[in-house]
Structure formats: C-alpha cells, structure tokens
C-alpha cells in the first residue's frame, strides 16, 4: 500500500487556517479598525436618518435663519445651527450622509462591474481582447473626469440619478487596470493550468479559480473608487452641476454656505469636515484591507 511509505500522523498540520489568520490581521490593524468603525457609524446614521434627525431637513423657517451652532452660542433646538433658509443643519448633514454613501456605493458598483469585466477579460484572454481593452483604458484616461461630467450634467441636467450614472460610467479605469494586471498574474499559476487540464470550462475557471484570488485587489479598488466618487459628487454639487437643491448633499451644503463663508465659516467647515472624515475613513479602510489581504506584498 502506498500509505505505508510515511506515517501521516507524524506530519503535523502547521499553522492556523487562512480565515483565522485574516481575522487576526483585521483586528490587529489599527487603521483598518478606525476606518471601519467610522464608516459603520456613518452608515448607521444614514440608515436611521428619519429617526435620528431632530427636524425635517427640508423645513424652512425664515425666522430661524443662520442660527449658530451650540458651540458658537446657539441653542440645543438647532445643535449645529441653521442655514440661510432656516433649515436645521444637523438634520441636513444626517440626510446628506445618505446621498454621499448612495452615490459612492452605486457609482463604485457600476464602474466596478464594467471595469472588472473588461480587466478580467483582457488579462485572461490577452491578444486582441487585451489590445482593445487597453485602448479603451487609454481613451478613458485621456478624458478629464470633471470636465466630461460637467458637460454631461450640463446637457442632461443635474439630478442624483444623472450624477450617479455619469460617475459610474467614468470611474471604471482603475478597476480595469488593476483587474487586468491581477488576472494576468493569477492566470499563470499552476492551479489554473491544473483546473484546465481537469477539463474545467472557461467561465468556471474565471469564477472559481481566478476571481477568488483577485478579490482582495478588487475590494481595495472599490473602497478607493467609492471615496473618489464621493469627492467628485461634492465637487460637482459645489459647482452647481451635481445634486440639485433642495436635496441635502454635503457638497451642495458647502456650495450654499460659501457666500457667507467670511461671516459664518461654520456653514462651510462643518460639511467640509464631515466629508473629510468620511473620505479619510474609507481610505484608511482601503489601505488596511490591502495590508491584511495581501501581507506578502508588504515590507
């Protein structure tokens, strides 16, 4: 019998499972944990906005305009004060989180699907497919995102849907680049050849052998592009070509506050700070995920 050649029990199984290792690394990574906690908080706030917001974010009150926040001598009726139309600033911030997260998530999802499909196809099939995809990536990289977005929004008119679609169809380049490179790398591994020699079909190879091994890179790009989309939305809204009033968007709030910036700087600083914290949290999480999912790439 073959198994008499070695006593298998003497060969111990070494080390913890990949899952245990991952958990250990995730909970041991400070940046990742801070980013994740902040992001979870913001998400919870966005989800429970109707319960958390003290006022209707759209309710105007001309008698209570430009009330200062409590720390500048305001009252607890409006903890973060009111804007130029007398709307409660805290409530608008809370509802604004919904807009930012929705735009970030949906735009990243759309561009993720487009970019990943293109990148994986280019990386796996190579040859002409690769040439075409590389050309498309270069075309896309040659287009200035903000200008194109401005043009499209100017033609179609600004609305939440338009902004999301424009960003979704513009931000796929990094997905395509990263997925193409990762796929090329993984394609050369012998386990892919082994699966092919077993008779696995191409869709199966892509789904079960290649995708699981490039997923870590995909997750990192998703977070980065989410932050990217949120900032772009803010920029577009600030220029008046993004989300249209009266929808509470953080970018729009900065834009609306800029006229009074010299007298009431908090109108700009508060939404700006929230935006900053959110993007920072997402980036911390993205960096952290890159570290914990591919520890061999560090040092």
């Amino acid at each position: 019998m073959a198994n008499t050649t070695v006593d298998p029990l003497l060969e111990e199984i070494i080390g913890p499972t990949p899952g245990q290792l991952l958990r250990k690394r995730v909970f041991g990574h400070q940046g990742l944990m801070i980013g994740a906690v902040v992001l979870v908080l913001i998400t919870l706030v966005a989800l429970f906005a109707p319960q958390l917001a003290p006022h209707d974010p759209y309710a105007q009150s001309l008698v209570a305009r430009m009330k200062p926040p409590v720390f500048l001598g305001g009252t607890w009726e409006h903890p973060l004060g009111t804007d130029h139309l007398g709307r409660d600033y805290l409530s608008r911030l809370i509802y604004g989180a919904r807009v930012s997260l929705m735009i970030g998530a949906i735009a990243a999802a759309i561009s993720g699907v487009i970019g990943t499909a293109m990148g994986v196809a280019a990386g796996y099939f190579g040859g002409r497919v690769d040439a075409v995809v590389t050309f498309l990536i270069n075309v896309r990289l040659a287009m200035p995102v903000v200008l194109v977005a401005l043009a499209v929004v100017a033609i179609l008119g600004g609305s939440l849907t338009v902004v999301i679609m424009v960003l979704g169809f513009l931000l796929w380049d990094r997905f395509a680049v990263v997925m193409r490179a990762s796929t090329r790398q993984v394609r050369e591994r012998e386990y892919v050849a082994a699966a092919r020699a077993i008779g696995a079909s191409t869709p199966r190879l892509l789904l079960t052998e290649i995708m699981p091994n490039i997923l870590n890179n995909l997750i990192v790009v998703v977070t980065l592009e989410m932050a990217h989309a949120i900032l772009l939305e803010a920029a577009l809204s600030f220029l008046g070509l993004g989300v249209q009033p009266p929808t509470p968007s953080w970018g729009l709030m900065v834009s609306e506050g800029k006229n009074m910036m010299l007298f009431e700087p908090w109108l700009v600083l508060i939404p700006g700070a929230v935006l900053f914290v959110m993007v920072l949290a997402i980036n911390l999480m993205g960096d952290g995920l890159r570290d914990v999912t591919a520890p061999e790439n560090r040092n």
Binding site: E190, Y191, A194, A197, I198, G199, T208, N213
Partner: peptide, 23 residues
C-alpha cells in the same frame, strides 16, 4: 477535452502554486 482529462492528468513542479490558496 473532458474525455482527455479523464485519461491524462498532470502533477506540477511547484506545490505552492499548483493548489488554489482560496480552496
């Protein structure tokens, strides 16, 4: 290809690269 796979199977050089690490 499937019939061929039943009759010929490979063993590769590098056991670190020939097994899918996620499975």
């Amino acid at each position: 290809r499937l019939a061929l796979a039943r009759r010929i199977q490979p063993i590769f050089q590098d056991p670190y690269s020939s097994l899918n690490p996620r499975k």
